[in-house]
Design a binder for these strands. Structure first.
Length: 826
RNA sequence: GCGAAAGUGGCGGAAUUGGUAGACGCGCUAGGUUCAGGACCUAGUGGCCGCAAGGCCGUGGGGGUUCGAGUCCCCCCUUUCGCACCA
């Protein structure tokens, strides 16, 4: 592309910035520490396209702006380096996960440099480094001490042919993605973190997080899924047990006509022990168990059930009701069993009709009594209780729930109870590329934590990765065999590694003292800089990562390591960039797999990184999804070239000019707009304002209407304001203007209210709300003068005709609306 | 099904508290400039009627509040996103 020599300029300034040490920046203003953070990126080379550049460019623009504004600001970058893709790449290509990861980090750093993105690399961390992950292990041990880490049986996806555990994403239509074998569910002992202990606080804390997008808070609320209800006890006389269920509708207990247990429920075995078709039922249970989780949670799963032949006693009516097993009841939620009330629950009614089970109504529509045998839809709202003697006449609602719960409690078979959908955090991964969980197993001592002074438990480099036969760590004798720290006898190391969300749940604290070998992080620094003022990242982390990070923050606070309980004060989620995809013929999210990416290299070569940055930010509102338009990029390129040409034209500006005040006002307006817009993340309108200033300056220079000094002042303001968007070009122009030092050290311009004032104003004249004329008046004109001027206008008089003006509404500085009698009446 | 957000020119999108709808950019049209260009400059560009002046209509659809509604309220339609046998 013909234009200014962007390649030479960009290379020159990238080199200059690389020599800087951002850590040494001192605050110029009286600002308090501002801690800005991008989400911990996964260093996969695949993400290098303009779609992914968006959040880094956005973060860099914000960083440069806040810095120029005089903020004491921290902007670190590091790598969420563990994870499954590295292990897959290793298996597919025979590269070691560590080498693959480090290579990708190198490529990504290079790309950041080409985008002109500044990070404080002295704080760089990588979670796969033992100096980082030893603190995952240390944290785990503290949680273990507090009872927040524990082990229990949990199902995993198991490929019988590969003899290995599969992640959900490795299961394709119920089969192993590698060999196509049907995936089975298998129970394994696994490590969990007790996030549910914090469910209530995690939920309540959301109300205080006003700097977070409402949709993220809502997603977290739904994920935690608090529900109030009651626990009710049902006797199982044949086996002499009590079955406890959770229900949000204890007020419908009289309508419970059967019970349903999850097939995995602990009482199942005893219930079917003497069943004549026990073998068949057990086979069916096995089949349900083996249905992969994802499928079982999918919509449209066929509801299947089996009668245990046993009965329970409905504590409200004393009736004997059948006990069933069904695949739609989940063992993880509530107590893993429900009382089925077909009259008032659609799912239960479905199941009752399917298996010929009884229906009993508690609530009836207000105006009539309905027959249980004939209803086809459950009675859900606005009902009135009948057939539940102590409560007849009571209305459906919270009051009813409360009264029934109290009643059940008085009789000793029920109690109020809150349940959450949130489950404990399973951190065990049967994988190589992760943080080893720091415990050993000893025949004599059982589970033994690794003592702190023996950390880190290092991940061995020398392992064989095949993707088969379980965790490669388990086959490494050098790793597994270790001395028991308690008794000195032979022990076996835990071979499970941690979920990478553990790494990312506290990394923001490690940035503050990244090389400290004596502790996880420096609490004093943490309390000074954190919580993070501004967190930037994609919406895809709205639930898991952000919830885990909040949980770990609270746990760290309870360990006395930090004095705050929420890690991120303000959260910004940038939207994805979409692009037309040749493959599908549709506009889709930009990604390698869809083949609709735009290479930053080609773009940077033809029009430069500054053009890519400006266009990316100009594209649309940053929080929304926006479509990349290959043709429109040229608009940003033209804009930057106009700026360049303004600089070339400056020497030709005349010594004095008639329109100096006008340009000066535009200059101040632009400062006001850009500053306000950047504070509100409105990068797109900031760029528009800068284009307007450029157009104004171009016109002034062409028309020779503005003095050279005023033009120069406007130009200097322009490149200063433009710097966060187009850093290379503006640095070059700043130098060519003869200023010393980087624009990064220049102060952000301040506007002057006085200079924004106009001597004339445009007043719009409406008649009955319709625009009829515009008047140029003195800015000082008062109500009366505006009204007189409006009534004096020929156009206005024509439109009013012989009607009478009954009222005049004046909006100072903007408009006057004349209301005529007919207009007001009609 | 539940929840949320959003519907504005040919396109991406502007429009603090209700106060000139369409900023800025792309595209398009005409003219200029250039050896040439996918370069640059100038003017125009929501629709309809009109030679023009000007008029009428116009922010998904319908109603309402108001001197005044893209903006607020009610109903409906569409799209996108999130969640879901959650007892």
């Amino acid at each position: 592309m013909t234009g200014y020599d962007h390649q030479r300029i960009e290379a020159k300034w990238q080199e200059s910035w690389a020599r800087r040490r951002l850590a040494e920046v001192e605050p110029r203003g009286p600002s308090s520490p501002f801690y800005m953070l991008m989400m911990f990126p996964y260093p996969s080379g695949d993400r290098l396209h303009v779609g992914h550049g968006r959040n880094y460019i956005l973060g860099d623009a914000l960083y440069r702006y806040r810095r120029m504004n005089g903020d004491h600001i921290l902007n670190p970058m590091g790598w969420d380096a563990f994870g499954l893709p590295a292990e897959n790449a290793a298996i597919a290509r025979g590269v070691h996960p560590r080498d693959w990861t480090l290579d990708n980090i190198r490529v990504m750093k290079q790309q950041f440099r080409r985008w002109g993105i500044l990070y404080d690399w002295s704080r760089e961390i990588a979670s796969c480094h033992p100096g980082y992950y030893r603190w995952n292990q240390w944290l785990f041990l503290r949680l273990l001490e507090k009872g927040l880490a524990y082990k229990k049986q949990a199902p995993v996806n198991w490929c019988p042919s590969c003899q290995t555990v599969l992640a959900n994403e490795q299961v394709v239509e119920g089969a192993c993605e590698r060999c196509g074998t049907s995936v089975r569910q298998r129970e394994l002992e696994q490590w969990f973190l007790r996030i549910t202990d914090y469910a209530e606080e995690l939920l309540a804390g959301l109300d205080e997080l006003e700097g977070w997008p409402e949709r993220v808070r809502l997603m977290q609320r739904n994920w935690i899924g608090r529900s109030e209800g009651a626990e009710l006890d049902f006797e199982l006389p044949e086996i002499g047990e009590t079955l406890t269920v959770f229900t949000t509708r204890p007020d419908t207990v009289h309508g419970a006509t059967f019970m349903v247990l999850a097939p995995e429920h602990p009482l199942t075995a005893r219930l079917i022990a003497d069943h004549p078709e026990r073998a068949a039922i057990e086979e069916w249970i096995e089949q349900v168990r083996n249905t992969p989780r994802i499928e079982r949670e999918e919509e449209g799963l066929v509801k299947e059930g089996r009668d245990t032949g046993r009965t329970a006693v409905n504590p409200a009516t004393g009736e004997r009701i059948p006990v069933w097993l069904a695949n739609y009841v989940l063992v993880e939620y509530g107590t893993g069993a429900i009382m089925a009330v077909p009259a008032h629950d659609a799912r239960d009614l479905d199941f009752a009709r399917q298996h010929g089970l009884g229906v009993r109504l508690v609530y009836h529509p207000e105006d009539r009594e309905v027959d249980a045998a004939t209803i086809t839809e459950p009675v859900l709202h606005e009902g009135v209780v009948r057939n539940a003697p102590p409560f007849d006449g009571l209305r459906d609602g919270q009051e009813a729930v409360r009264r029934f719960t109290e009643w059940a409690a008085e009789q000793g078979w029920g109690r109020a109870r809150v349940t959450y959908r949130l489950r404990d955090w399973l951190i065990s991964r049967q994988r190589y590329w992760g943080t080893p969980i720091p415990v050993l197993y000893c025949d004599g001592c059982g589970v033994v934590p690794v003592p702190d002074d023996q950390l880190p438990v290092e991940l061995p480099y020398d392992v064989e990765l095949t993707g088969r036969e379980g965790n490669p760590l388990a086959r490494s004798a050098a790793f597994v065999e270790a001395e028991c720290p308690a008794c000195g006898g032979p022990g076996r190391r835990e071979t499970d590694t941690m979920d990478t969300f553990v790494d990312s749940s506290w990394y923001y604290l490690r940035y503050l003292s990244p090389r400290d070998e004596s502790r996880m992080f420096d609490s004093e620094l943490a309390n000074r800089w954190a919580p993070v003022d501004q967190y930037i990242g994609g919406i895809e982390h709205a639930i898991l990562h952000l919830l885990y990070a909040r949980f770990v923050c609270k746990a760290l606070a309870d360990l006395g390591l930090v004095s705050f309980r929420e890690p991120f004060t303000n959260l910004f989620n940038q939207g994805m960039i979409t692009h037309f995809s040749e493959n599908s013929g549709r506009v889709e999210k930009m990604s390698k797999s869809k083949g609709n990416t735009v290479s930053p290299d080609a773009l940077i070569e033809s029009m430069g990184a500054d053009t890519e940055r400006v266009y990316t930010l100009f594209l649309g509102p940053p929080e929304e999804e926006v479509e990349w338009n290959d043709e429109a990029v040229a608009g940003a390129w033209r804009f930057l070239n106009r700026v360049w040409r303004c600089h070339e034209a400056l020497p030709d500006a005349p010594p004095t000019g008639s329109a100096d005040r006008q340009l000066e006002r535009l200059r101040h307006e632009t400062i006001q707009r850009v500053t306000g817009d950047l504070d509100r993340f409105k990068f797109n309108t900031s760029v528009a304002a800068l284009m307007e200033l450029t157009n104004g300056l171009t016109r002034a220079l062409d028309g020779r209407t503005v003095s050279r000094s005023a033009c120069e002042q406007a130009f200097d303001t322009l490149i200063t304001l433009l710097h966060p968007f187009a850093p290379h070009l503006t640095e070059e122009l700043w130098e060519r203007r003869g200023y010393d030092g980087s624009l990064l050290e220049a102060s952000w311009p301040v506007y002057d209210e006085e200079k924004l004032r106009r001597s004339r104003m445009t007043v719009v004249v409406q008649i009955d709300g319709k625009l009829r004329d515009r008047l140029e008046l003195d800015a000082e004109a008062d109500r009366g003068e505006i009204e007189r001027a409006a009534l004096a206008s020929d156009k206005v008089r024509q439109h009013i005709g012989d009607r009478r003006v009954s009222r005049a509404v004046v909006v100072p500085g903007r408009l006057i609306n004349l209301v005529t009698e007919q207009g007001a009446g009609g």
